[in-house]
Design a protein around this nucleic acid. Structure first.
Length: 478
RNA sequence: CGGGGCGUAGCGCAGCUUGGUUAGCGCGCGGCGUUUGGGACGCCGAGGUCGCCGGUUCGAAUCCGGCCGCCCCGACCA
């Protein structure tokens, strides 16, 4: 009896996504509403993302810190836009030690409030700046609807919080981190992203500018995979963080914050997955190469596993993450299907015939093509093969993104295109929130990015026909 | 919070309309045997307070009331 087939990606994308996440052993629902248990395979992927990011944070002069999960509600309330934006989603602790608390504590939905109320004590002089800190933590947001990895009530992320002496320095920092995010998404996760500015309505509560990376999923919806915010002096004002500048004057510090969450793991699934399951970019794949031994008798088994062991040793010497699937309770066909579901980039089959010939059969997850290599060749070339697969995934995803990116000058085309969920639609926009709202009302799509630098589109607003201010990129999104 | 659906073994479900003795099926799990180059098969076996509380009844998974939880669609969102 064959195991249940996955839903077809093209027929029911949400069901396909959830089945892949569950069956690949990435995550499952927790006991509390909207919570998530991240399982080893999903967590390993998140760890790879963490590593890639953290390396770059350190290289750009940042240090890691940790602030408390709980803080008084009134601290959150000090920045007006911020509290207004987050209040509906904040979980509040009202009891402790068996008694009602005199002052309710909030579970952080993000840490600007607690961090900036602390920065007040850490910043007195321009010599204390810049302050370049990051924390890896969990936050809680009481979302109405949740979905594994993409939107859970508790999620893992990193949040960077920096303070600077000048506007320009803070602004550059926000853009620098946006670039770090782009690099990790594209180079490590093979996930092409658009970068740019958010419109006012899509900005982070309390930010002057929000810079996202936006990826396109295989069902044509966009995913915000990371954001960097230029916060101006809003938080410094709210939490009274002033420093003495070189002129001896008191000045409010300039701020940025930036974050990437474990949502990006879901992004990888939806960017690269196919009808057989995951396809993982080699650079972050927990297992880059799996060896499936094939045998009948105990004798063959011993020979084949011995050969597999040598292959593993050689590949590990070359810093490749290898797994030998020597489970006795499953037959090879089962293992092939399972490792394809889990998205392992390369599979090596070793049977009695191969042992005799000193060779292995290599199959890649992208094409499914089989080839025969000598054991030595495999060890010498596996790294290159993986690099090739990494590039191919990025090329694939880029081609898909490009094929699903359209430009238009007519509202009808924009509206119909967005209603069909066919990716990014680019058109001139007058900058008016009413036009933005109209598109959203009629198509559920929002402006995902505006150019980093505003530039005359040379065309009238695609919605109202008034002079265009800049080119906007619309899409439906997760 | 509004609309819809669902809670029965680890997972997926049937049974409920029309109450009736030991509550079924598939997958998975354990044992034995045969198998093993694309998701194996046979035999034996373990596993259940039918979401919770109360009510009706000789008798409740099934009918009634209340509660809790989950999923999908909307508003919200990394």
């Amino acid at each position: 009896m064959a195991t249940d087939q996955l839903p077809k990606q093209s027929e029911n994308f949400p069901a396909w996504y959830l089945e892949v996440v569950k069956r690949a052993g990435m995550a499952e629902h927790g006991l509390a509403r909207g919570s998530q248990i991240i399982k080893p395979y999903g967590f390993a992927l998140w760890e790879a993302v963490q590593q890639a990011l953290d390396l770059r944070f350190k290289a750009t002069g940042h240090e890691n810190v940790y602030f408390p999960l709980l803080f008084p509600e009134k601290v959150l309330a000090q920045e007006a836009d911020h509290v207004e934006g987050f209040a509906p989603q904040v979980a509040v602790v009202t009891r402790g030690g068996g008694e009602e608390l005199q002052e309710p504590l909030v579970i952080r939905p993000t840490s600007e409030a607690i961090i900036w109320s602390t920065y007040k004590n850490w910043i007195q002089s321009y010599r204390d700046l810049p302050l370049l800190l990051n924390q890896w933590c969990n936050v809680v947001r009481w979302e109405m609807r949740t979905r594994l990895f993409l939107r859970t009530s508790e999620f893992l992320w990193q949040e960077g919080h920096t303070a600077h002496a000048t506007r320009d320095e803070a602004f550059e920092e926000a853009l620098r981190m946006l670039e770090v995010y782009r690099e990790v998404a594209e180079d490590e996760l093979a996930m092409p992203v658009l970068t740019g500015r958010k419109s006012a309505s899509e900005r982070f509560p309390g930010a002057l500018e929000t810079f996202p990376i936006e990826a396109l999923m295989r069902d044509g919806k966009a995913l915000q995979a990371g954001t960097s915010h230029f916060l101006g002096q809003n938080f410094a004002r709210a939490y009274d963080v002033q420093f003495l500048n070189t002129q001896g004057e008191q000045e409010f510090a300039w701020a940025t914050s930036w974050g990437v969450s474990a949502r990006i793991v879901g992004g990888v699934v939806m960017t690269h997955g196919d009808d057989r399951g995951l396809r993982l970019p080699p650079r972050v794949a927990p297992v880059q190469l799996v060896v499936v031994p094939i045998y009948r008798s105990d004798d063959e088994r011993a020979q084949v596993l011995e050969s597999a062991g040598r292959v593993r040793a050689g590949l590990e010497q070359a810093s490749i993450r290898v797994k030998v699937d020597d489970r006795d309770q499953h037959r090879p066909g089962f293992k092939f299907a399972e490792w394809e579901l889990k998205g392992v980039p390369l599979r090596v089959e070793i049977g009695p015939r191969d042992v005799a010939a000193g060779q292995v059969v290599v199959v890649d997850r992208l094409t499914g093509d089989k080839s025969t290599l000598s054991t030595d060749d495999l060890i010498a070339r596996a790294g290159d093969l993986l690099d090739g697969l990494q590039r191919a995934l990025f090329t694939d995803a880029s081609a898909f993104r490009d094929a699903n990116t359209h430009e238009t000058n007519t509202f009808a085309e924009l509206r119909d295109g967005l209603a069909e969920l066919s990716g990014f639609w680019i058109g001139a926009w007058c900058g008016d929130a009413e036009c933005e709202q109209k598109v959203s009302d009629e198509t559920k799509a929002t402006i995902r990015v505006l150019p980093l630098v505003q530039e005359d589109p040379g065309a009238p607003c695609v919605v109202c026909g008034k002079p265009g201010l800049e080119r906007a990129t619309w899409a439906q999104s997760y």
